[in-house]
Amino acid sequence: MIFDLIIIGAGPAGITASIYAARKSMNLLVLSKDIGGQTSLSGDIENYTGYQFITGPELTKRFKDHIDTYEIKVNEGEGILSLKKDTDIISIKTDKGQYRAKTVIVASGKMPRELGVKGEKEFKGKGIAYCATCDGPLFAGRIVAVIGGGNSALDAAIGLERIARKIYIINIEKELTADAIMREAVLKSGKITVLNESRVVSVKGEKFVQAIEIEKNNSKKDIAVEGVFVEIGLTPNSGFAEGVDKNNLNEIMVNCACETNIPGVFAAGDVTNVPEKQIIVAAGEGAKAALSAFRYFIKVK
């Protein structure tokens, strides 16, 4: 079967795109690792029009309820491996199957950036975590390290303060770059130790993490920790989109109609070079991408 449209991703961009496409009666399929994307990981949201206040998981539930009012086929839990266009048809390979479509919207968002150090792959889930709100509670009474010095790192450290025994913040910069209010909270805490100008070199352990090796001023030392929370920013999920133009941050380049350099392939939301990574911006871009895809589809049909 050749779908009219395949949407990759089910965050605010992908879900909005699927609602718009469904309303145009396109025969569509949504492929996604999860529902809600980064929105589902957000805490309090106070800038999404129509809601003075809503939490990330609640807004995700609303998204899900909205998409469920249409008959949209959503394959949840599929990881995308490749996307290729041959003549008129776009082929998508996932870890579960293969699909074909006339148009595609890439709305795969961003994911946490990895450290890229020795031991990271080995200890993923065995002490190394990328979501402090999810996995933090398992580190009750343990010594942990948060890697990073920005808002998300300090947010994680403050969140872990109630749970962990001791927290190290390993920051590669000279000083913490997070907002002043968060820096103050961290510096006031008796539980948090900040190590500036320090770089993680490796993660060590046997079955689980036991230590991180850090480098400061060309000298290396081990710090005993059982948990490592990596909070060093985000990277776009664009690796599978072969032949699609990207910028130096690996974001997919789109024009104001959400078109990529490949006719029939559109992109929306945080995976693109569109400025301002916001839920409402992603949702709006998703709507635009769906309408652009529909216009293109009518032309080539």
């Binding site: 999860d34 589902s40 990330g56 709100t133 999810c134 996995d135 933090g136 509670p137």
Partner: peptide, 10 residues
């Protein structure tokens, strides 16, 4: 599960 993890909720 933990109450805050989205995959747990799903």
């Amino acid at each position: 599960s933990t109450p805050t993890c989205p995959h747990c909720i799903r």
